[in-house]
Design a protein around this nucleic acid. Structure first.
Lengths: 333, 333
DNA sequence: CTGTTAGCGCCTTCAG
DNA sequence: CTGAAGGCGCTAACAG
């Protein structure tokens, strides 16, 4: 592999000059520049990024820590992050936290010791205090899907309370009065916010919140099924169920269909996240959008701007959920 | 940030000794080792991986190139790769190829120039020749989901022809004689193999393959819907449809349900890949497994063994698809 | 505008 | 078993 030295010899210039044309941050005369370029081409020269990093104290890599790499949720986010960063010739190093405090901390440690120039974190298990502490370190960090007041300018997040509100409000506006709620794991902030929005909508319509009809699920399809079986076993009248995410809604709907209930004629369902799959099954799931890919893109842009001094990019930090009405919700008869 | 030099001073030993205890590849007396360890702890020392890489000519990073980061397919694969590699303290750098030849080649270039110790590639658009050429480079490369005879010891793949066969065989064994086939994009090798298996099963049952009832879809839910609309518009009798993946099967089923057809009473469906979602909708999709996560794990192990000299790991290079019978297939009446 | 000269933090012979 | 010394390939002052 040719080195910068080989190039300098061939072009008849110094190492520094070669370095300059590579980074084109200093003026180099056109003729010498051309000589260097020719030599590089002739040698098939490719800079050694490791050496560049060591010398410049910059790795050109950004670490991304997500809860999980699978599922319908993080893929789109990673896609946007990778695209935004790669086009700036930065690379992304990934790690998974699995919603576990120790693994999340390990992941952060791992990425930091890898000399990342910046970190994009989507973490759920670690405390606000830990993150506030982290954000004081020299490595710039941006948080996706989390709002912490003390460091809010580093948070890219969705207005989950509002999302919870509009989902339930849609159901209520259809005339439903007997609602069940399938929640996600309550240790997650976004889950609590969605529930909060649900309750606010209920209140606004003067409908009492029935604790017995609120089930804490696990955000997975199977959890939605379990939840629905439980709710059905209660033998209470339910005309609509609000789910904290689409996956659980899908699992719950499947159970209802198996029990011979018609959706939405007998019972309406609304989800949350607007993931692709439930748009294509029957009935098509009404839901609330969660523009996770947009949030990923914004986080990447934040890094580009803060760390790599890209002034071009526009940054949006808060996102509004939107209602998507499909065929799983219907007016009460 | 403390360096190896600080540690050596504090421990009263040389740089070399500190390096040795870090890499413990040379014998160091227990007492000096302990002194060094203590110094490292006291200083909160963390090795600079960039410098390590430059000096050792090894980056401890492996590049992973997949078609896409989203979708139900690559997430599980990435999960396994990340887990396997991180536990060996290697990091994974990702890039997406988007099934486009140029982007795939760019991605490979990108990862190589990043000094990856090895590459794991899941590529579809580039030619066999290109990959054979690549595999001659010094950077070791393993291929997932692709079989190329000349470099078969670097290929981790699923027996797709066999998978296509057993899917259709299941349908035929149920007595169906009027089958449609919704294929994936035929430029993909695995897609052609699945179709080949389908035809072999047909032949074995003496059922002619009807070109008109074979539709080339795009592997997405929406593509499955489009395909089904088309097939229905033909007004030919169809009692079962074999789909090249689960996503298209789901989209196709949704269309049938909307047309008032009952699944599986009026029409049976079988998918391919065994992704999580369609297991939780109604009817539950019968399918053929595609152990993509296992293949990811194996690819990571291959790297661990070939590149990082881990002798412990066992490697399996070919995977067999398995039939999963659920409720979307039924015997012909 | 260009060349010289130190390092960046660590690994790895080579002696001892 | 341990220390000394020379890079790895490149960047970044500092001169000129």
């Amino acid at each position: 592999m040719a080195t910068i030295y080989d190039v300098s010899v061939m072009a008849g210039v110094s190492l520094a000059t070669v370095s300059r044309v590579m980074n084109d941050n200093t003026k180099v005369s056109d003729k010498t520049k051309q000589k260097v370029l020719d030599a590089m081409a002739a040698l098939g020269y490719r800079p050694n990024t490791i050496a560049q990093s060591l010398a410049s104290n910059r790795s050109n890599s950004v670490g991304v820590l997500v809860s999980q790499l699978d599922g319908p949720f993080y893929g789109p986010m990673m896609t946007e992050i990778e695209m935004a960063l790669r086009s700036a010739n930065k690379h992304v190093i990934i790690a998974a936290g699995h919603s576990d405090e120790k693994q999340e901390k390990d992941g952060v440690e791992f990425l930091m010791s890898r000399g990342c120039d910046a970190l994009i974190l989507d973490v759920e298990a670690v405390s606000d205090e830990y993150l506030i502490e982290l954000s004081k370190a020299t490595t710039p960090i941006v948080f996706i899907n989390r709002y912490i007041d003390a460091i809010k300018d580093r948070c890219v997040y969705l207005e989950n309370e509002q999302g919870g509100f509009i989902a339930t409000e849609h159901i209520l506006s259809l005339g439903h009065k007997q609602l069940a709620y399938i929640s996600g794991p309550l240790f997650k902030l976004d889950v609590r916010d969605r529930l909060k929005g649900h309750k606010r909508a209920l209140q606004q319509y003067n409908i009492p919140f029935d604790e017995a009809l609120c089930y804490e699920g696990d955000f997975r399809e199977s959890g939605g099924s379990t939840a629905m079986e439980h709710l059905l076993s209660l033998n209470k009248p339910i005309t609509a169920v609000v789910c904290a995410n689409d996956q659980m809604a899908s699992g719950a709907i499947a159970v209802c269909l198996e029990h011979g209930l018609r959706v939405p004629e007998d019972i309406s369902f609304i989800g949350y996240d607007n993931i692709p799959f439930p748009q294509y099954i029957s009935p098509k799931l009404s839901t609330v959008s969660n523009p996770i890919h947009e949030m990923g893109k914004m986080a990447a842009r934040w890094v580009l701007q803060q760390v790599y001094n890209d002034q071009e990019v526009l940054i949006e930090r808060t996102f509004q959920p939107e209602l998507f009405i499909r065929t799983s919700t219907a007016p009460i008869d």
